[in-house]
Computed example of a mutant assay.
Amino acid sequence: MFSFNKLVTFTTILAASSAAFATPANVKKRAALDVFAPPITAPVEGDVWVVGQQRNVTWDTSNAPTQITNPIGQIILRKGEETTNILLASCFNILIGSIEVTVPEVVDGDDYALVLFGDSGNFSPDFTITSSA
């Protein structure tokens, strides 16, 4: 029969050997991934977009980290305090810095903004969308 001391010793050795086998010898450290929220540079406050026009949305990528958690972007329209379900662009690389969108048919207003999603959602300044030039 095992004595208590032998049982403790056996259990300790078993636990240590299990831990040694569970950890690979060549563990590579993963590169840290960073959240990237590039500021939108266009549209700017006071811009007027006309329904049906093609407009460029731009953002600053100069401070992009080398490893981004989500490099796939999308742009959604915001009206007032509410993000709409109007998707203006999707499935683009957030590092391209600009993309052309078509101004959607919406109610005229001066409280529209864009939300640029990738890692994080960031808003443009408010601008106007109108149905006539």
Rank of each mutant, 00 (worst) to 15 (best):
N93D: 15
N56P: 03
G73D: 11
P24H: 04
G46Y: 14
A15E: 07
D111R: 03
A15T: 15
G46V: 12
P39F: 00
T61R: 01
V107P: 03
T41G: 08
I13W: 01
I99G: 05
L87D: 03
V35Q: 06
L116W: 14
F36E: 01
V8T: 14
I40D: 05
S90H: 02
I13L: 13
A113V: 04
F21R: 01
S18G: 13
A20G: 03
D108G: 12
G80V: 11
G97H: 11
T84E: 03
S18H: 03
I68T: 04
V103D: 07
G121Y: 09
G121F: 09
E105T: 13
L7W: 02
N63W: 01
V51T: 14
D108F: 00
T66V: 10
A89M: 02
A32T: 15
T84A: 04
K28S: 13
W59P: 13
Q74C: 03
S17H: 04
V35D: 02
F36R: 02
V27P: 09
A32Q: 13
I40Q: 06
S98P: 09
D108A: 15
G121W: 07
E100I: 15
G52C: 09
V35F: 02
T102G: 08
A32N: 10
L7P: 03
T66G: 14
A89W: 00
P104K: 01
S124Q: 00
T9D: 13
V106N: 06
V57D: 01
D34V: 01
C91D: 13
N56C: 02
L77E: 00
E45N: 11
F117M: 10
E100G: 03
R78Q: 12
G97K: 09
I68H: 10
P24W: 00
R78L: 04
S62V: 08
T9F: 14
V57T: 04
V8F: 10
D108R: 02
F10G: 08
G46L: 13
S17P: 14
V107H: 00
L87I: 12
G97W: 12
G109Y: 00
L77P: 02
P104W: 05
L14K: 05
T58Y: 00
K79Y: 06
S3Y: 01
I75L: 05
T102L: 12
L33M: 11
Y112R: 10
T23E: 04
